[in-house]
Design a protein around this nucleic acid. Structure first.
Lengths: 335, 335
DNA sequence: GAATGGGGTGAAATCGATTACATAATCTTA
DNA sequence: TAAGATTATGTAATCGATTTCACCCCATTC
C-alpha cells in the first residue's frame, strides 16, 4: 500500500501539499493539484485511516448498541441509523449486547479508547462508563438514546409519544365496546413501558374501566407474548381484547388464543405495537401502533451529529409521529 | 484523556514499560507492574486506539455487509457474526448496502484504507475492489462470504447444502401426493437460488414431475411472495403446493392464498426457507427448511479469523447442517 | 523602488502508541 | 571471581497522516 510519502515523491511535492490536495484542494494551484492527483491515481493511494484518525482525533465511527439485532424493530431502527450515518460520512459499529450489561460497558469503552466518536443505545440501560461521561461533559457527551426517553438520564433521544400512542390503542378497544382488556407490557425497568402503561391507565380511567384492566409483563419476545396471553386468557372473566407492547408479543398472543380456541377478532381483539413489516401479513392482519422505525434511527443520528458538531447546549428530545393502524385483528366486543 | 506518557510519568517508568505492562505483563517485574497498574487505574487510562492501530497495522474490526439488515435472516446471521467477532476481540462494522453496488464498493474501500482487517459479505455480489484484492492476494485476501457459495469467486464461505435442502423440501411435497408444485425463487443472479433450483429440478425429475413444475422469481420480500403466489394460483391447473425460497415470501404467499380463498394446508401446502423466528407462529405453523443462521455468521467469522491468522492456504467452504422442519402448513394433496 | 500583502509551498513538529536495540543489574556457573 | 546468561528497563525510531510556521515569489500600492 502506497503512503502519502510515495505520492509526494512521485509528484515531486511535499507531503503537506499532497495532504492539502486531498483535504483542502482550494489552497493548491491548479498545476500541482493535477500532478498530485495523477500520482494518487497512478499509485492507487488511499489515506491510511489510523494515521488520519490519530492526528485529527476523529474516527468517523459511531457505535450503535442494541439488545437484540434480530428483533425486527431494532433492526429497522439500525437500518435508518446506518443510512443517516453513511450519508454524513460516518460508519456504524454494531453492538449486539444480548441484554447483557457487561457487553454494553464494553461497547461504551470504545468511546474512551477513541475508537468511535459517539454512541447511540437502543436499550434503556445507560452503561456506567457513559453515565460518568455525561456527569463530566453534560449535554456535550456524544451519547444519544435511539428509541426511549428517560429525562433523568440527561441524554438526548428520539422517540414517539408512547403515552399517547398507548392511550389511543386502548381508546380504540374501549370504543369497540371492550371492557375487560388485557395488557402485555415489556420490561418495566424500561421507561418506554412505564410511559405506555401510563397511557393505558389514563385511557382506562377515562373510560371508567380501571378495575377491569389486566396487566401482565412480558419481555417483547414472541414466547413471552404467548405465555402471558395464555395466562390472561385462562382465568374466568378473561379479557375480550389484548393490547401487546410489541408486535412480536402479539404474534405469540395470537398463537395462544388459537390454542385456547378463541378466534381473532371474533372472540378476541388484538392490538400490537411497532408495525413491523410482518404485522399486516398476519392472519388476521394486525391492528397496531406504527412507529417510524427507520426515522427513529435517522433522528438519533442527527441528534448525535449535532452534539459532535458542537451545536447542542442541552439534551434534546425529538418526538416523531406514530400512527394507529387499524386492521383486521380488532372488532366490536360481542355481548 | 490521559496518554501513555502521563501514566509513565506518574509511575516513574518509561512509556515502553507501561506498554509492556499492558500487553506483555510477564516481561515486567512484579513491583513495577503494580506501580504502573496503580497509575493506570488512578488516571483511568485507556490506550488510544488510533495510535495503536497505526503502529500495529491492525484495527480489530471486520466489516459485515448485508443487503438488508431488517430482513430477519440476515439480522440473525449478523447476530452470530457479531458474537463470534466480539469473542475474538474484534468488532463489527455494519454495512447495510440496500442492494446497491456503490455502497458495497464503499464498504469494500474500508479494507484498502485499513479501516478494517477483513470483510464478510452476505449478498452474492463481490465488489470490484474486492475482486482485485483477491486477484492479487488469492486465498489470503481477508474476504469471506457469509451464506452463499460461488466456487468461481475464489472466496471462502459458510453455507448449507442448498441443493440438497431444496430437494428435500420438494421430496416432502411429492411424498404428500402433490404433483403440480409452484416454486418461488429468489433472484437468480444469486448462486444460492440457482443451487436450490437445481435441487428442485432434481427432485421433480426423480418424481417424474418435471413437466408440472411452475417456477416464479421473487426477491425474498413478503411483497414479492404475495405477488408471485397470486400469479401462480391464478391460472387454471394451479399448483396444490408452493415452495418459497424464503419464509418472508411464504408469508406473502399465505396472504395471497387467503385472498384467493384457498386454505392452507387443506387446499394448498406451503413450504418456506430459513426458519426465521416467526415461522412457527404463523397460522398454520410454517413447514420450512431451517438454516442455522447464527452459526452461519459464526462460521464466517471463524473462516475470516483463520485467514487473518495466516492459517489458510486455499479458499475453504464450510457446510453447515440444515433441517426440514415439518409443521402444519403441509398436508396430503386432495384428490 | 520600497513596502505591503497574499497565494503557494515545504520543513518539521505532532498525534500516542509499539518495539528493536542498548544497557544496567542480577544471577549462574566453571 | 570472571565470563556469560538472564532479566528488567530505558532510549529512540517508527507507523502515516495533518498542520503550524516560515519562506519565497510576485503583484499591488504609495
Amino acid at each position: 500500500m502506497p503512503t502519502i510519502q510515495d505520492v509526494a515523491r512521485r509528484a515531486r511535492v511535499s507531503t503537506a501539499t499532497v495532504s492539502r490536495v486531498l483535504s483542502t484542494p482550494g489552497m493548491v494551484s491548479e498545476v500541482t493539484r493535477e500532478r498530485v492527483m495523477a500520482a494518487v491515481d497512478a499509485l492507487g493511494y488511499e489515506p491510511n485511516y489510523a494515521a488520519k484518525s490519530l492526528r485529527t482525533l476523529r474516527t468517523a465511527k459511531i457505535v450503535v448498541t442494541v439488545p437484540d439485532i434480530s428483533n425486527p424493530f431494532f433492526s429497522s431502527v439500525i437500518r435508518g441509523a446506518e443510512e443517516a450515518a453513511q450519508a454524513a460520512g460516518y460508519s456504524v459499529l454494531l453492538g449486539d449486547t444480548r441484554h447483557r450489561a457487561e457487553r454494553e460497558e464494553q461497547y461504551a469503552g470504545m468511546l474512551r479508547r477513541k475508537e468511535a466518536d459517539g454512541l447511540i443505545f437502543l436499550g434503556h440501560r445507560l452503561p456506567d462508563t457513559l453515565a460518568e461521561l455525561i456527569a463530566r461533559q453534560g449535554a456535550k457527551a456524544p451519547v444519544v438514546n435511539g428509541c426511549e426517553f428517560s429525562p433523568d438520564l440527561g441524554v438526548s433521544s428520539a422517540h414517539i409519544d408512547n403515552t399517547a400512542a398507548a392511550a389511543e390503542a386502548m381508546h380504540l378497544l374501549y370504543g369497540l365496546g371492550h371492557r375487560t382488556i388485557g395488557v402485555i407490557t415489556g420490561p418495566l425497568a424500561s421507561p418506554i413501558n412505564r410511559d405506555r402503561l401510563e397511557g393505558v391507565r389514563a385511557a382506562a380511567a377515562r373510560h371508567g374501566a380501571k378495575a377491569t384492566l389486566r396487566i401482565a409483563t412480558g419481555d417483547f419476545s414472541v414466547e413471552s407474548g404467548e405465555r402471558e396471553a395464555h395466562g390472561l386468557l385462562a382465568g374466568r372473566d378473561a379479557p375480550t381484547a389484548l393490547f401487546c407492547f410489541s408486535d412480536e408479543m402479539a404474534m405469540g398472543a395470537l398463537a395462544a388464543a388459537r390454542r385456547a380456541g378463541r378466534r381473532c377478532p371474533d372472540d378476541l381483539s388484538l392490538v400490537g405495537f411497532d408495525d413491523i413489516r410482518f404485522a399486516r401479513y398476519l392472519d388476521p392482519a394486525l391492528t397496531t401502533v406504527s412507529q417510524p422505525m427507520e426515522d427513529l434511527g435517522r433522528a438519533a443520528v442527527a441528534l448525535l451529529l449535532d452534539i459532535l458538531a458542537g451545536r447542542q447546549a442541552t439534551p434534546r428530545s425529538v418526538i416523531l409521529p406514530h400512527q394507529l393502524m387499524v386492521r383486521d385483528s380488532t372488532a366490536p366486543a360481542r355481548r
